[in-house]
Design a protein around this nucleic acid. Structure first.
Length: 327
DNA sequence: AATCTATCCAACCGCTCAACT
DNA sequence: CAGTTGAGCGGTTGGATAGAT
């Protein structure tokens, strides 16, 4: 049988390691039940069986399809990887925004969150949260579910994502936009970065730094009225033509516990963002520990530098905003 | 070039819940 | 009503790989 051959061909240490995790009773059947990475042939068996007979009754399906896998394993493989509508690849900034918001609302209800991101699986979202979001919380030595971290997300992360979205729009319209290039050139550390929206980790042009001190006192971005460049960057407007349905985000902002709550308004085709911090304590945490002008990041505009708004020192753990934004 | 470290993500596990017998 | 089974969920693990030293 094909699968037997595949099984024997898999000499990877992963397989033996996974096996070692199983109980002794499982070991009794270890020659019958396969674990570890799926092979192409196993995938084909599963896909063809489901195409012919449909999904469900996974234990039975596994047997009938000739797969030496548990029903659970088959189900997971199908739902997380083989199902035709499963999206692969990096999460878009829009998707990241949605995840941040929905998680603030629902917590670790990954499957529920996944329902709002078509083509994304709970596993993928969970991985994103653990590897990207929780990592930042760890660096900052704050609880990822704390109000403080929620505010950090709201004040720094979300604006950055919104800028990514806007940046991708700008780029798609005109990659040689003089306005954009001048904006970028104001920030050497950012302009040196390749703009790659497939890679969500890359930092993007920061929000207008002069806003930050004002954010503390409830700054409203949509009412920005001077400096065309900063207006361009601060007045975050997400076109409804973006891949994500932003009426969803608009709705999400209605949830009181959401970082989106009250941050934006839906006007015409755009979602205007009003990002403010509602937790003064959090903002107070983000005090300066870096000499003025050392950074070129959202918090390091000359105006900001004068106000000593530069680095983050969370509990003595000095961590530059560049690091924070490199998420 | 070799080694170490960090990151990503597929796959596993245990648990819970609902449906069925 | 109790036991069994299937499905689904969230947490965790560890191999692969990229990047740093």
């Amino acid at each position: 049988m094909t699968v037997v051959a595949m099984s024997s061909s898999l000499s990877s240490s992963s397989l033996s390691k996974k096996k070692s995790l199983s109980s002794s009773s499982d070991d009794d059947h270890s020659d019958q039940l396969r674990r570890g990475p799926w092979t192409l042939e196993e995938d084909n068996l599963l896909v063809h069986y489901i195409a012919r007979d449909g999904e469900g009754r996974w234990n039975l399906l596994a047997k009938r399809a000739g797969l030496r896998r548990t029903g659970k394993s088959c189900r997971l493989r199908w739902l997380n990887y083989l199902k035709p509508d499963v999206k692969h690849g990096n999460l878009t900034p829009q998707e990241q925004l949605l995840i941040l918001d929905l998680h603030s609302k629902w917590g670790n209800r990954w499957s529920k969150i996944a329902q709002h991101l078509p083509g994304r699986t709970d596993n993928e979202i969970k991985n994103y949260w653990r590897t990207r979001v929780q990592k930042q919380a760890r660096h900052l030595k704050v609880d990822a579910n704390s109000a403080a971290f929620q505010d950090i997300i709201r004040c720094f992360w979300i604006p950055r994502l919104l800028q990514k979205i806007e940046g991708s729009k700008t780029l798609s319209l005109s990659s040689s936009s003089s306005r954009s290039s001048s904006m970028l050139s104001q920030n050497p550390t950012v302009s040196d970065q390749p703009v790659n929206y497939a890679a969500p980790d890359l930092p993007l042009p920061p929000p207008p730094p002069q806003q930050l001190p004002q954010e503390v006192s409830g700054y409203h971005q949509e009412h920005h009225d001077h400096n065309s460049d900063s207006e361009h960057t601060s007045n975050s407007c997400i076109s409804s033509t973006e891949s994500m349905n932003f009426s969803q985000i608009s709705q999400l902002s209605e949830y009181p516990n959401s970082p989106f709550h009250g941050i934006g308004t839906f006007q015409k085709d755009c979602y205007y963002v009003d990002i403010g911090c509602n937790n003064m304590e959090t903002m107070a945490l983000a005090t300066l520990s870096v000499p003025a002008g050392e950074f070129q990041n959202p918090l390091c505009d000359p105006h900001v530098a004068e106000s000593n708004w530069v680095g983050c020192d969370f509990g003595g753990n000095i961590w530059s905003m560049d690091e924070f934004m490199a998420i």
